[in-house]
Design a protein around this nucleic acid. Structure first.
Lengths: 355, 355
DNA sequence: GTGAAAGCGCTAACAC
DNA sequence: GTGTTAGCGCTTTCAC
């Protein structure tokens, strides 16, 4: 596949490279500094009861040798890993990306490292994730992804370790949850389209996970509230939440012969695809059809036209999730399971009154 | 910040939750199965010398108790972590995202777990990453990000562990590298614009990392090769490679009063921003200005107009990086440091002949 | 085939 | 203040 050179297979798959110097251990440091390992441990962990002069000497040796304590060994004896697992879909979208970036960042500030568990679409992936999750001896788990396997949730709800879900609403199952009111947000968004004068409003939604049904419910509630009929022919259900899926969903809607003057796509990436399908059909957004998204991902303002969408306060939600996790690990009483954030309709250019 | 409930601060930050049942250990399994820990170890690791009947008994207990061996303990004694670290910029773009997703996936197939090191913009972030990197006792490191700190590279080139860079060309420093010929790709892309008839071609580039200079060099080479002058007024240098930056870069170009009929943005996200700036200025892409990107990220085909761009074979590069890492860890001889992949100009709709 | 013992790198409890 | 000891959970000799 590559051009300039090839890789010679040797078959010695189990051989380990032998030319690698082993990392220095606390024992060597102790020997070099002329003290015991215990004293070195005390020195590097800022404990009391080390003579300043001895501490200096130890720290000097540490610096010179580039010694870094081994996490695995430390966590074994401490019986804590200082690690939080984040379960993410392998196909994470930009919204989720911003969310877990924020969490990772915050967690680092709290002194925790983050381990990602990417759940794939393949069969067995969830089980493997769960096994790894257990093998890692985590201090806590954050779920950014809804899994299908009930065993996953039952392990999590076993009370073995703190769990926070974001942006998922499952407080009824005894999990701490950080999210917005999805249904109400979708309803507000749809009502905005109605207020613009739209009567025939398409919906691009999906089936996986629980947010599509919540957002779809909001859409329907808005229509019904305005005395408009919910026409199944205006609703396209797609397999994923990507631009590709949105494109196919909109083509489908178009092929059915209806003529929606506006379309609500339940994610921004879906909305990008919708605009694309319109473009291919020679239709202009927002001139011919208004398009409304959901999430307010990074590039939403930089699309042409800028995408009108529902903003979830990603940073605040990520920060709160991390903070909650930290407090839960510390054993604090954190009150009720719900953290419901305010959302916001961000009006840009992709929606306008029908002609 | 949130609405429905609040979190009561208790101040007992160092207290650990005590109501969590400890995970079962190999000892309990041994006791329950009426054998020694050594035998349990043999059974779960598919070693020989365990009576089938005993193995069955042990496996049954393992299943019933949900026992999963502790990674940290295992890696301590094995002196291998089965973990590969991937160093990524905190602000990773969609191209990098696809790249590391592929790597993570492949690595999992090889039996390796992946640890991400997100390098932030803040001072000291690289050092902290390096320290963590060392503390993790990794089996290998993949760099998707160029760091500034020389200490980072000198640690990596110390031969302590296998290192692969992708998509970075630093084979001269003794690293295995997987990448395309950036300069030539940029040159080809620019020549494509020239072949369309464009004479005044703008460039949106940056300074961080080495790819912008390579891509810029290709741009200049193409212009010079065609006898066109390289006009500094047609070049905007931006701080990052996001849509936001691209938008600002294009506004800058526009404000300078020139009138490029085409613009080469050195990343697709930059290109998205360029199209946006054009839109804001009442200019149409590709009607008034052609826009060319680089990377061929997921959504490139779903933009309106579809983005003409240079495709890097992300999956193949990710796969090769993972495979190379695997073989390096296994101690195989992998030949030369370079793996240079073919790229491809993907012609879509954002570029056409000037009017 | 199986068990006992040693030890990976580290920290905490307990001497001194 | 500092060293000695024990032990975290696991795998791997080495006896038997």
């Amino acid at each position: 596949m590559w051009v300039t050179s090839t890789c010679a297979a040797s078959g010695k798959t189990d051989m380990i490279q032998s030319d690698m110097a082993p990392a220095v251990s606390i024992k060597e440091i102790a020997k070099l500094a002329g003290v015991s390992p215990a004293t070195v441990s005390r020195a590097i962990n800022d404990r009391k009861y080390v003579r300043p002069e001895v501490r200096q000497r130890i720290l000097a040796v540490v610096k010179k040798t580039g010694y870094v304590p081994n996490y695995a060994a430390r966590s074994m004896v401490l019986r804590r890993t200082f690690t939080v697992g984040i379960v993410v879909p392998d196909t994470f979208n930009m919204f989720q990306r911003q969310l877990f970036s924020t969490m990772e960042r915050e967690l680092e500030v709290y002194g925790y490292r983050t381990l990602f568990f990417f759940v794939k679409w393949e069969r067995g992936s969830e089980q493997r994730c769960l096994r790894r999750l257990q093998a890692e001896n985590l201090d806590g788990v954050i779920m950014i992804h809804e899994v299908a396997d009930p065993a996953f949730y039952s392990y999590l709800s076993g009370g073995r370790l703190p769990v926070v879900l974001c942006p998922i609403a499952r407080e009824d199952q005894g999990f701490y949850c950080v999210h917005i009111d999805e249904e109400k947000a979708a309803r507000d968004a749809t009502e905005y389209l109605i207020s613009l004068g739209h009567k025939e409003i398409g919906l691009i939604t999906g089936t996986h996970f629980s947010f599509p049904s919540q957002r779809s419910a909001g859409y329907k509630a808005a229509l019904e509230g305005a005395g408009l009929a919910v026409d199944q022919r205006s609703i396209a259900t797609v397999e994923s939440y990507s631009a590709d899926a949105g494109c196919r969903g909109m083509r489908e809607l178009l092929s059915r012969g209806g003529s929606p003057s506006a379309v609500f796509a339940i994610t921004d990436e879906l909305a990008i695809g919708v605009v694309r399908a319109l473009y291919e059909a020679g239709l202009d957004c927002p001139g011919d059809v208004s398009v409304l998204g959901f999430d307010d991902i990074d590039i939403a303002p930089f699309l042409a036209p800028g995408l009108t969408t529902v903003r979830q306060p990603i940073r605040e939600m990520g920060r709160t999730t991390a903070e909650l996790m930290f407090r839960l690990i510390a054993g604090e009483d954190c009150g009720g399971f719900s953290r419901v954030f305010p959302y916001e309709l961000v009006v840009r250019e992709s929606c306008r009154a029908p002609v």
